[in-house]
Structure formats: structure tokens, C-alpha cells
Design a protein around this nucleic acid. Structure first.
Length: 255
DNA sequence: AAGGCGACCAACCGCCTGTCG
DNA sequence: CCGACAGGCGGTTGGTCGCCT
């Protein structure tokens, strides 16, 4: 009965990783790259489950991890993304370079949940805690991701500005004016995003569309923040892993 | 000093999904 | 089409640490 174990448990170590195990794993992945996690432990001389190796690498050993405290901007971005995506930690992590899903999940459960509760916001629904339950058929709003404007977006490709989404009036926005739940996806934008971003009157940056108008990642507020944020030169796009101009819609697909 | 307690976070577990033969 | 397998994900657990009494 039940599933077969992912690995031979009788001869695998569990618990905290030792320095030597870390070194072995790092050395092996440097030499052979990621992948084939099931056979990796044996090949690397580790008495660990392949899944455990993968987790250790992704969450702790990867060289591009940022680590350290979350910034206020990251906090707000996580909240916004969580309101959009729910507990899709991997998707949220995909928008926070250097952060892992596990790290964000832990941070959410230990810090942000409490923070939202202190604000009187239900962390699960992002609604005020004292808001009475509403009839689903009448006033409840639903979050949808629209792919209705692909043609329109394709036409925008000729425009050099990588428009990710377009503002439209809808009931959700009127209820939460700072939160644009209408995700719109464009085809990958190949050329470099100019820095600072072009700030045409109708082209709000992606940070603004996420409701981060006052964030240092806002790149359309007449350059007020650009170059003035504490040592960081990241634009909003770079911060959102969009320096390349690509919002990978595949990673945003709702399952 | 020491025990209790909560916060934090690394790691594990089990399920789901995509891929391949 | 189907089953096996590997990878990925989210929920949960358990160890450690710091603070408080």
C-alpha cells in the first residue's frame, strides 16, 4: 500500500546538513550542474535523499541567494503578490530575485501574517477582519487573470515600451484602487529596458500597477526615486526579475 | 541560574504534475 | 493510453535561539 519512498530511507542521513555535506553538494553541482536529483546523492557521495539535496541547494546553497532581512518594499510586494496569487510561494518567489519559496513562506507565516492582522486585514483573504461575510452571488469579487487582449498586446510589440498590463476600470479596482488584479501578459520583450524607464503619461510602471507607487521600485514617478534609494540601482523591472523585459507568463499561469 | 515560552527557519513529508517509454 | 518515475510544490514539523519571569 501507499507510495514507494522517494529513496532508500534506511541508509540516508536526516536532519541538519553538515559543512562537509554542503561542500560535497556544492562541488558536485559546480562540476555537473543541477538535475537528476535522484542519482545525485550517490554520485556525489552523499547519504541523503535526492529531494533533500535539491531542497538544500535551492534554499540554502545556491550562489544567487540574497539572504538577510526583507526590505519594506519586499514586504509590500509579497503582500500584493499574495493577494493576487494566494499561497503560490514559488510564483511569488519568482518575482523576488534571490529569495526562495521556502524563505518567503516562512517569512509570510512569521512576519507578514502578523503584520496584516495588526492592520486589521485578514491575511488569507486580504479583506478587513471586521468585514461581514458577503453573498458570493452578489457582491463577492473574483480574481481573474485575463488573456483577452493578446491581439492588442501583439500590436503593442511594435511599441518600444514593454507594456505588461493595461489599466481598466473594473469592480475590483474600484473596491481596491491600489490593486490591479487584471494581469495582462505580453510576449517576451527582447531588447534592453531603457534606464530610466520611459515615463509617458499613460505608461505606469509595473511597480505602480502592483500598487507600489511610493516604492523605490517605481520607475515612472518622474525619477523621484531613481538613484536615490539606499545603494540600490535596481529599477522596478529589475527587482521583479524583469530587467530583461520579460514577464514569463508561464510562471504566472494559475493552475 | 534555570525553566517556560514564543519566534524563527531549515528540513521533511506527501501529494500533484509533467515526461517518457 | 497507461504506468512508472522524477521533479516541484505547499503544508507541517522539530530544533535552536533569545527573551522573560
Amino acid at each position: 500500500m501507499g507510495r514507494s519512498p522517494c529513496c532508500e530511507k534506511a541508509h540516508t542521513n536526516k536532519g541538519a546538513w553538515t559543512k562537509e555535506e554542503d561542500d560535497r553538494l556544492i562541488a558536485y553541482i559546480r562540476a555537473h550542474g543541477e538535475g537528476c536529483w535522484r542519482s545525485l546523492p550517490k554520485a556525489a557521495g552523499l547519504l541523503r535523499c535526492g529531494k533533500s539535496c535539491r531542497l538544500r541547494w535551492i534554499n540554502y546553497l545556491r550562489p544567487d541567494l540574497k539572504r538577510g532581512n526583507f526590505t519594506e518594499e519586499e514586504d509590500e510586494l509579497i503582500i500584493k503578490l499574495h493577494s493576487l496569487l494566494g499561497n503560490k510561494w514559488s510564483l511569488i518567489a519568482g518575482r523576488l530575485p534571490g529569495r526562495t519559496d521556502n524563505e518567503i513562506k516562512n517569512y509570510w507565516n512569521t512576519h507578514i501574517r502578523r503584520k496584516l492582522l495588526n492592520r486589521g486585514i485578514d491575511p488569507a483573504t486580504h479583506r478587513p477582519l471586521n468585514e461581514p461575510p458577503q453573498e458570493a452571488s452578489t457582491t463577492r469579487t473574483t480574481t481573474t487573470i485575463s488573456f483577452n487582449h493578446v491581439k492588442e498586446e501583439n500590436e503593442m510589440i511594435s511599441n518600444t515600451t514593454p507594456v505588461v498590463c493595461k489599466e481598466e476600470k473594473n469592480p475590483v479596482q474600484e473596491k481596491c484602487p491600489d490593486l490591479n488584479l487584471e494581469l495582462k501578459i505580453s510576449l517576451p520583450y527582447q531588447s534592453q529596458v531603457p534606464e530610466p524607464m520611459k515615463t509617458g503619461a499613460r505608461d505606469l510602471c509595473f511597480a505602480c500597477r502592483l500598487g507600489l507607487q511610493n516604492s523605490k521600485h517605481c520607475s515612472c514617478n518622474l525619477g523621484a526615486h531613481i538613484g536615490s534609494s539606499s545603494g540600490s540601482t535596481n529599477s522596478g523591472y529589475e527587482f521583479l526579475a524583469m530587467k530583461s523585459g520579460v514577464l514569463d507568463y508561464r510562471s504566472l499561469e494559475m493552475k
